[in-house]
Design a protein around this nucleic acid. Structure first.
Lengths: 183, 183
DNA sequence: GTCTATACGACGATAGAC
DNA sequence: GTCTATCGTCGTATAGAC
């Protein structure tokens, strides 16, 4: 009897963001995409933010899976580099989804999902930095990557040279610094 | 005959953002703050984005001045550390203004203002990294700081420990890594 | 229970009179 | 340069049809 489903709505919202950008994501557009009128969405998601939180949770799991796959079976340092590249690739592929993950208006209370998605990160960095500084090192690397990709996808960087080179330099320098702090 | 001025409008907009948050910045609110009706603003600024670009330009200059003051008369490494702290203090003081500076929807074509504001940065980092890698090092440090403060003001970080410590660790590790890349 | 029709209030923005 | 009046779109509340 139901014309749509929670999962279909979430997927429709994700598709609109990926294909047409976050600014085009309206409740009416989502509703039209699943063949329903806008007010009907409120029977399934309390409001627009709740729907976006569902899209975000899925995206976060996707990002976590890509990071885990990139680190799979690698030594700590190569794992960190491969995860950095995977992180950047994700942000380049769908920048508006990336922004959604870090949207301050959509933060969960628990933080459990973030912790889980970034676990491979923490693991690799802890081994590089030494036990006492694993959390700080993981935070530093996350911040480095977040800053790099945000400057890149937002076009906010002074943008002198190519981003590829600057990205590698930054990640490598930080890894070196962290390794040095371990000794 | 004029009831207000461009400068007064920009300042009113800035105040609303600082005191009540960016979501409360509406054309009607700005107009009310300077004692006119909303449509009158369009005689002075083409649209809301144009007004925000003016606020952003002023904020960027402010940030640049603070960075320059922090670096004043310091050796490169302490200058970098003091600028990092000044950068973080700015973002903590008015996070919504900070977000405005890096808002992808408000980027200028020229980029001249960004370059000027971040010049003290480039100077200090070039001396630490060595001539050939000054731009990369400055970009890396800007990305590091941008990532750190965004995670902090957005509450996006896994947020394990205190941010003060994580901030110092991250900036110091990157500086070490950059210095090492120079040799 | 599920969806539709309708509508409300706030927003950014425009047209035209003074 | 400022006003009043108004448009189109947004999120969303409500009431009722199947």
């Amino acid at each position: 009897m139901t014309k749509t489903s929670d999962a279909q709505i979430v997927e429709a919202a994700r598709l609109i963001i990926v294909l047409h950008g976050a600014t085009r994501l309206t409740q009416r557009a989502v509703a039209a995409a699943v063949g329903v009128q806008a007010p009907s969405l409120y029977k399934r998601f309390a409001d627009k933010a709740a729907l976006l939180r569902a899209v975000r949770a899925q995206a976060l799991a996707d990002l976590g899976a890509r990071l885990a796959a990139a680190a799979q079976g690698q030594a700590p340092a190569p794992a960190a580099m491969r995860m950095a590249n995977a992180f950047r690739a994700f942000s380049a592929e769908c920048p508006d989804i990336y922004r959604l993950i870090f949207d301050p208006a959509l933060q969960d209370a628990g933080r459990g999902a973030e912790r889980a998605a970034l676990a491979p990160f923490e693991t690799a960095l802890a081994k590089i930095a030494g036990a006492g500084q694993g959390a700080s090192a993981a935070h530093a690397m996350l911040a480095m990557l977040h800053g790099l990709v945000r400057l890149e996808i937002d076009g906010s960087a002074p943008a002198t040279g190519p981003h590829d080179e600057a990205f590698r330099f930054a990640v490598y320098a930080l890894l070196q610094g962290i390794a040095q702090s371990a000794g």
